[in-house]
Design a protein around this nucleic acid. Sequence first.
DNA 1: AAGTGGTCTAGACCACGAC
DNA 2: TCGTGGTCTAGACCACTTA
Lengths: 243, 243
Amino acid sequence: MNIKRSKTITEQVNEILRERIRNATYAPGDRLPAENELAQEFEVSRATIRSVLARLDMEGLILRKQGDGTYINERLLEVNTHLGGLWEFTHLIQNNGYQPSIKLLMAQYRPATAEEAEKFDIEVEDEVLVMERTFLADNRPVIFARNILPAAWIQAPQDKIDGSLHIREFVKVYCKQDIAYAISDISAVIADERVSSILKHDILTPLLKLDIRFYDKSNAPLLYGVSYFDDSILNLRLVQAWA
Amino acid sequence: MNIKRSKTITEQVNEILRERIRNATYAPGDRLPAENELAQEFEVSRATIRSVLARLDMEGLILRKQGDGTYINERLLEVNTHLGGLWEFTHLIQNNGYQPSIKLLMAQYRPATAEEAEKFDIEVEDEVLVMERTFLADNRPVIFARNILPAAWIQAPQDKIDGSLHIREFVKVYCKQDIAYAISDISAVIADERVSSILKHDILTPLLKLDIRFYDKSNAPLLYGVSYFDDSILNLRLVQAWA
DNA sequence: AAGTGGTCTAGACCACGAC
DNA sequence: TCGTGGTCTAGACCACTTA
């Protein structure tokens, strides 16, 4: 097996194994080759193979049984959202079987509220950028998202905001920062008129609200987001492997 | 540093480091000793230290910066629920600052509905055990949970059901099985009368509903659970580290 | 008994950040 | 430049399942 350079070996093995699971080279329920066999095939050490398998295990893609073998989890066809990607809305839409797209509704600067200032560790009245977007599933709006970040964070030309970027790309491009982790609050709410009219949504059906704060490796807050969606249209289904 | 046997080395190091974080030997924001130093202190290899740090990193407890060092995440005081433990309701209650307890409302056998039969891969009309419980925060009911499992799964004496067990303990004791992973659906609902009366809850406030299915390593369904709670009382706050 | 995954070691070299 | 974490190796031995 030849492996291209430039990406890490584990990353390459990771991609190959995922592809084999995706295209059913390893079909659901199948037993994978032993770790030693995989190590031989890819010409890497067993430790490398194991670090890849550990990640697939965490995500619930495989089930490892000591003394027996490693199996493809056949139930993962039903699952659409892995825990690590709660805020990857386009994936959520895609995994529910729709074609995702993003529409920028608004992007404007205004002074921070007291609450926002506290969240970002900035002064009240410091300027923030507010961006409102909808995520569409087959051209139907299903998620309303409002993102807020201090204007001072923005390093790149601010004139035209590209609203079609994912959050992690957005932060990367405009703030030249990488997101290290996020803290999310999940709650159930009755939509206000504005959200309801945007989502063309029955006002009596409660929505899921996601309140997400993103931080970098130095623990500086990068971006704050609040999102609403109807869980009867988009199923929020998570896998959790035992720790 | 002396280390007791019987548990794995990584598990022991894990516990020691967590304790040091908890009791602020390593205070929030502090930089940890270098991996090599920790390896020397515990008399283990650096790989062992790294596997422990990798887990703390995933859970958001620490932030690792290449070329710099590893730091305690000072923002974790705010966080109460790690993703791995979505169904550990007593932890959820505890982390919201209340004293948790569990009250068994009902435990009875009845034939499976069509929906249940499909979920468990059993026949319609096969017998299932239904258990209804409330989780109390300072003696106030805050979570209503209904758990269902096929009666045939139960290996232990069925006469008296101990309703105060956690799910993983319950499955361990009565089914002699270990939970390998779970699939959860999160949704927002308006409570029905029964749930509302149990939770003494304003009927207009939407609740979070958690639909969780538990599986073992062989992919056999073990148990199914539906739970309701008011997110204005119990904050469902998750940490997600970047994959 | 044989084969599997689980744990652990003692190195090596690299990429990055602070000084 | 130096120390840090990031990657990777090539072994070893153990615990467990299956036949």
